[in-house]
C-alpha cells in the first residue's frame, strides 16, 4: 500500500492539459493534408499524379481550390503515397489534428477551412452534454482504432472528467461508437446493437474503415462503413485517428469545444 503510494508520487500526475492547453503531438504527425495550389504543375491538374497514387481513391481531380484535387478525408489513410507521388512537392501533411465533422460530405476537403463538428441540437445536448455513455462496437476494426479509443479512458486523457464513458451494454448507452468497415459477418449484430440502444441515441464512426470501408472499401465482405447500416452523427477520420482527434471530435459534439 505504501509502496503503491510512493510509486504514485514518483510517477506524478500525467493527465494531458488538453482541451484547456495545447495537445502534445508528435512532430511527424500526419494530420490535415495541405495542397499548395501554387506549386501544382498546371499540366498535372487534369490527371494528377497524387490522385492516381492514392490506394483508396480518396482524391478527386479538379474539385478543390484552384483546381487542385479534393481529398475525401473519410477515405484518406494518411499514408502519404500522394505526397511521394507529387513531382512538385505540393502536398504535405500538417499537424492539424482537428478533423471530426457532423456530415459525411463535410469530409470532402477542398482546401478551405474544414467545417468542424457542430454541437448537438439543443435537446440532445441537454440530455448528453454532461453525461454521455457509449457502447463501442468493433465491426471489423483491426484493433488499432479500438486501442486508441480505449486509451481515452486511461489517466492520460481521463475521458471520465468530461462525463463520457464506455459502457458494457447497449441498454446502458446513449449511443454507439463504431469502428471497422462492417464486414458481412458483423452486419446483423451491429443492427441489433443499434436497435437495443434506447432513443434518443447518437452514433459515432471512428476511423477510415467505419467512415468509408478504409482499405477494405469495395471488397466483397465489406459494407464500406457504419452509415451503410445505421445513421451516423459524428465522423472521426484517421487510420487510426489520434486519440486527441477523437477527443476533440467528441467534445465538439457536446459543445465543450467551440472555437475553430
Amino acid at each position: 500500500m505504501l509502496r503503491a503510494a510512493l510509486e504514485r508520487l514518483r510517477q506524478k500526475r500525467r493527465t494531458v492539459a488538453f482541451p484547456d492547453g495545447a495537445p502534445n503531438l508528435p512532430d511527424r504527425l500526419r494530420g490535415l493534408p495541405v495542397i499548395d495550389a501554387g506549386k501544382c504543375p498546371p499540366d498535372c491538374l487534369a490527371a494528377p499524379a497524387c490522385a492516381a497514387a492514392c490506394p483508396v481513391g480518396a482524391m478527386r481531380p479538379g474539385l478543390g481550390l484552384g483546381g487542385t484535387p479534393l481529398v475525401d478525408l473519410g477515405k484518406c489513410l494518411f499514408c502519404t503515397d500522394c505526397m511521394a507521388a507529387c513531382p512538385a512537392g505540393a502536398i504535405t501533411f500538417g499537424r492539424d489534428y482537428r478533423l471530426a465533422v457532423r456530415k459525411r460530405e463535410h469530409l470532402h476537403f477542398r482546401g478551405e477551412a474544414l467545417r468542424l463538428a457542430e454541437a448537438l441540437e439543443k435537446r440532445t445536448r441537454k440530455l448528453f452534454g454532461r453525461s454521455l455513455k457509449l457502447r463501442q462496437v468493433s465491426a471489423g476494426g483491426c484493433n488499432a482504432c479500438e486501442a486508441d479509443l480505449n486509451v481515452l479512458t486511461t489517466i492520460v486523457f481521463d475521458l471520465g472528467r468530461f462525463g463520457i464513458d464506455f459502457v458494457a451494454s447497449p441498454r446502458h448507452a446513449d449511443g454507439l461508437m463504431i469502428t471497422g468497415p462492417v464486414p458481412e459477418n458483423m452486419r446483423e449484430a451491429l443492427i441489433k446493437c443499434y436497435e437495443a440502444t434506447p432513443d434518443p441515441k447518437i452514433v459515432i464512426a471512428s476511423g477510415a474503415c467505419a467512415i468509408s470501408g478504409g482499405p477494405f472499401a469495395g471488397l466483397p465482405e465489406s459494407h464500406d462503413g457504419a452509415d451503410a447500416v445505421v445513421p451516423v452523427d459524428l465522423y472521426i477520420p484517421g487510420c487510426p485517428p489520434h486519440p486527441i482527434t477523437a477527443l476533440d471530435g467528441m467534445l465538439r459534439l457536446l459543445g465543450r469545444i467551440k472555437k475553430d
Binding site: 468493433s138 471489423g140 464486414p183 459477418n185 449484430a189 465482405e221
Partner: peptide, 8 residues
C-alpha cells in the same frame, strides 16, 4: 466461434 471480423 470466430469469423465476425472476416474482411477477406
Amino acid at each position: 466461434a470466430l469469423g465476425f471480423q472476416h474482411r477477406g
